[in-house]
Nucleic acid binder design. Structure first.
Lengths: 215, 215
DNA sequence: ATAATGAATTTTGTATGCAAATTCAAATCC
DNA sequence: GGATTTGAATTTGCATACAAAATTCATTAT
């Protein structure tokens, strides 16, 4: 019975963390931008205490930079950061893909196929925003498939840091086509439950993604 | 000139984060233990504000559990947590070992040899505490060697969660001997700058470590 | 004796207050 | 005119205050 579930009382600081995290990872606040506590407090209608707690958490996630006595800024993403993060994402997604092949239900894999078809539709239509979103959903679904909450959380934190960079990057038509094909191959490997191949393809896919982001 | 370096003004909450993190990862506070804010405030001589900010950060690192309106407890480590964390640590340390082989200076590798000899000395002497500490230092030195700050930070956060478990586990004499031998092999691979082999050996070493913790 | 009730106490979550540091700009000097 | 100084206005960091929730504990009812 749903009515017997514990009522989720969202704490203010928790809500603020989520709102701010979305704001930053979705790219609505440019990197390097100063975060004014007072202004944000008024915008959200909360006092400085929960806001500052949220900023500390986001700083530990690497989304904001805290400078003593100077407050918070949205963290910048350097080329070096991308060089650091992508090898880790490759390792993590490879690991997740391998586990997902072993653990995902057939139904979950069919759902992945639905997403893939949907994404190919966005590609055909040339809808970059929708493509990007479905792409994101596919990567997350594979991660969910590994059923390792720690891996999911670790990946999410790192992926969040570079999501903005991926938003901004506009792929060439050739690269876009290639990316869709890579995704198709990944899905075949998953449907065949070939863990090693899935891992390998995911790593290559991410490696290529890194190259398209290179400035 | 040292006198011209910026004076590092440690923020209170940052200091509290470090102190509390050590307290928990070193196992001085048992998992599940309730964290009383008032008591900790008095012990550290700080007010609740910086302490609570620190707790939020540690919660996002997975070291403490925050329950709405009920405060903080030291996070428990379940077998399932270990099953989740170790595969990730294997992937991360493998990645770090591979990079370290390519990037570490000869001097740094010689320093690693010093640590290895030191650790073998502790093994001969049967000094588990000292062995554990040097062991830790070796793993950290390899991580440092990869020169990937993001990888170092990600690894540190995950390793911190299971450090307590490793403290508690007492290896059998046979397993202890094997662990020392594994470390020797890892160092040979690093000295030969054989990245692939180093990665492989590190993953196996961690996999074995996981097995000794089981039960 | 045990369980249930509810008032007193403690603890938590958020807001506010205050001192120190930083920023910005007008005023000063070269 | 441009650089430098100085002081008011912000802004930050920490402490404290207060309301809501949870816990404790004595009291009552079964």
């Amino acid at each position: 019975m749903e009515s017997l579930q514990p009522i989720k009382r969202a704490s203010l600081h928790g809500t603020v963390v989520e709102r701010l995290r979305d704001l930053i990872t979705e790219g609505h606040v440019p990197p390097g931008e100063k975060i004014n506590e007072k202004a944000l407090c008024e915008a959200y209608g909360v006092s400085r205490t929960p806001l500052r707690e949220a900023l500390k958490v986001l700083a530990s996630e690497g989304l904001v930079t805290l400078t003593p006595n100077r407050g918070a800024t949205v963290a910048e993403i350097t080329e070096r950061d991308l060089d650091e993060v992508f090898p880790i994402l490759m390792a993590l997604e490879g690991l997740a893909g391998e586990a997902a092949c072993a653990r995902m239900s057939d139904a979950a894999i069919r759902q992945l196929r639905v997403l893939q078809d949907e994404m190919e539709g966005h590609y055909e239509a040339g809808d970059r925003a929708a493509y990007f979103q479905t792409n994101q959903a596919i990567h997350e679904a594979i991660l969910e498939g590994c059923e390792n909450q720690t891996l999911i959380a670790t990946h999410r934190a790192l992926a969040g840091r570079v999501r903005r960079a991926r938003y901004l990057a506009n792929m060439s038509p050739a690269r876009w086509k290639q990316a869709v094909e890579e995704h198709a191959a990944i899905l075949w490997a998953i449907e065949a439950r070939d863990g090693a191949r899935t891992a390998q393809l995911l790593r290559e896919h991410l490696s290529n993604k890194r190259e398209t982001l290179r400035g």
